[in-house]
Amino acid sequence: MAMLHTVNKSPFEKNSLESCLRLAKAGSAVLLTEDGVVGAMKGTKHSKDVADAMANISFYVLGPDLKARGLSENNVAEGIKVVDYSGFVDLAAEHESVQAWL
């Protein structure tokens, strides 16, 4: 399995998600955490970029960070899987390496 990329910044604040999406290779995975969970929501200015990237990258979002921010899983864009910390650990273990886009 390829690389797991983590993004912890809102795409409204920083370009971390954008940089990640342009440099993540097909077949890799992206996990949105902390303020990065904003990038997982439906109907935002950035939703299309994520939807386009989904063609060859799998997306995950950290549930505890969604909940903390009052963001409902129901409003997470289709195709993005919600995971808890246990799922984060599994993703890190399943992929060959982990890169944080700080």
Binding site: T33, P64, D84, V89, A92
Partner: peptide, 29 residues
């Protein structure tokens, strides 16, 4: 075996909390 790097101090950023939750979950597993 996991190695963890924490770049930020406590409270101002979530980094340390996130790292702690990750470490706990990894140990539990």
């Amino acid at each position: 075996k996991f190695g963890i790097l924490v770049n930020e101090g406590p409270y101002t950023h979530q980094a340390s909390d996130s790292a702690y939750e990750f470490a706990k979950a990894a140990i539990e597993k």
